[in-house]
């Protein structure tokens, strides 16, 4: 009974998939994959890499889950990452706002604020003007990278600041810092969606906006909140990324990452048309995406192929979520079985 309940959980399937993929990767790589060494009290190894690099995706996926849960989307996350990275790095490097004296804490805070502002803009377009979310966020997708360029004055901002580096490269209790940041974000979002009615309201909006409104849900306000949160999570991911590459590269930071976000959420099982969502599933989805990328990379396959592979996975997941497609597959199944049976008889 409890086993049945467990398998029915939305998180169950993606979790099994993650385990299988990690296991497969382990076998293919001949055990190297699971090797974890301890140097100076820090853990090292491929799994730790996945945890470190996957954190960024996980944070992004958490915000994206909410946007997709309402039946919307936010494809501007990559640009928001570029903006937040540019702001944080420029402040730390004292290119802008010299009065702050390169204070890392304030730089991060302002970068997050910038993310919130970008999110509020998206929220304004979606909630207030009722523009289709994809078109609304596409404006920032394009303009955002330009804005980041203008902040960074068209240059790649490189910085030297150990405190800032440690946001991505640091260790805490032997584990990478980003993993803890991701953990905090996940816990905060779980509290938000489960200890308040927010999660249920988001799902109701995603399923049927008109009904949700007449049931007294403040659709507009909730959409604002979601897009702002999405902006903040994207900004956080941007900060981690820029700390990782020790600088802000506005052209490439978070480039095309929106698909990774959507992919993580889709693999997690949230329908791209909105409704039921699970933050934990999406985080697991993000780890799956990262495991695949890390493994492909480890095999020395060109990174370009990763993009192709991800696109193919998105298409497959979409097809699996598509009812007409599955109906067609199902209707084909018994037929092929019959044909095989006939052949055997012949």
């Amino acid at each position: 009974m409890s086993m049945k309940k467990l398998t029915q959980k939305m998180e169950f399937k993606p979790f099994v998939v993650l385990l299988v993929i990690i296991f497969l990767c382990g076998i293919i790589s001949g055990g190297d994959f699971f090797k974890i060494t301890i140097v100076d009290g820090h853990f090292y190894g491929r799994l730790i890499d996945i945890l470190r690099n996957g954190s960024r995706y996980a944070i992004l996926a958490v915000g994206m889950t909410m946007a997709l849960g309402t039946g919307g989307t936010d494809i501007s996350v990559g640009s928001i990452m570029a903006i937040s990275g540019a702001i944080a790095c420029s402040i730390v490097d004292e290119r802008i706002l010299q009065a702050l004296g390169g204070n890392v804490f304030l730089a991060v805070l302002l970068a997050l604020l910038a993310g919130a502002v970008c999110g509020a803009w998206n929220g304004f377009m979606v909630a207030k003007l009722k523009v289709q979310p994809m078109v609304a966020t596409m404006i920032l997708l394009t303009a955002g990278r330009g804005i980041a360029q203008l902040i960074a004055d068209g240059k790649i901002v490189t910085i030297t600041n150990d405190a800032y580096y440690s946001i991505s490269g640091g260790y805490f209790l032997g584990l990478p810092v980003p993993a803890f940041i991701a953990l905090i974000v996940i816990v905060l979002f779980l509290i938000l969606t489960r200890s308040t009615a927010f999660g249920m309201q988001v799902e109701a909006i995603g399923v049927n906006q008109a009904s949700a409104r007449l049931a007294g849900i403040k659709v507009e306000r909730n959409l604002w909140i979601i897009y702002i949160l999405c902006g903040i999570t994207a900004a956080l991911a941007g900060i981690i990324e820029s700390a990782g590459i020790k600088g802000a590269d506005c052209n490439n930071c978070g480039l095309m990452i929106e698909l990774d976000g959507i992919l993580a959420v889709a693999i997690g099982g949230t329908a791209l048309s909105g409704g039921r969502f699970s933050i934990i599933s999406s985080v697991i989805g993000a780890l799956i995406v990262q495991t695949i990328s890390t493994t492909i990379y480890a095999f020395g396959v060109a990174p370009e192929l990763t993009r192709v592979a991800k696109a193919v996975i998105v298409i497959i997941v979409c097809l699996i979520q598509s009812k007409p497609f599955m109906d067609r597959v199902k209707s084909l199944m018994p037929k092929t079985a019959k044909v095989e049976a006939q052949e055997v008889h012949a």
Binding site: I75, M256, E258, L259, I262, E304, L305, T306, R307, V308, A309, K310, A311, V312, V314, I315, C318
Partner: peptide, 10 residues
């Protein structure tokens, strides 16, 4: 979007 990535990757 998926097609965009696919072709860009190609």
């Amino acid at each position: 979007l998926a097609s965009q990535f696919l072709l860009r990757g190609m």
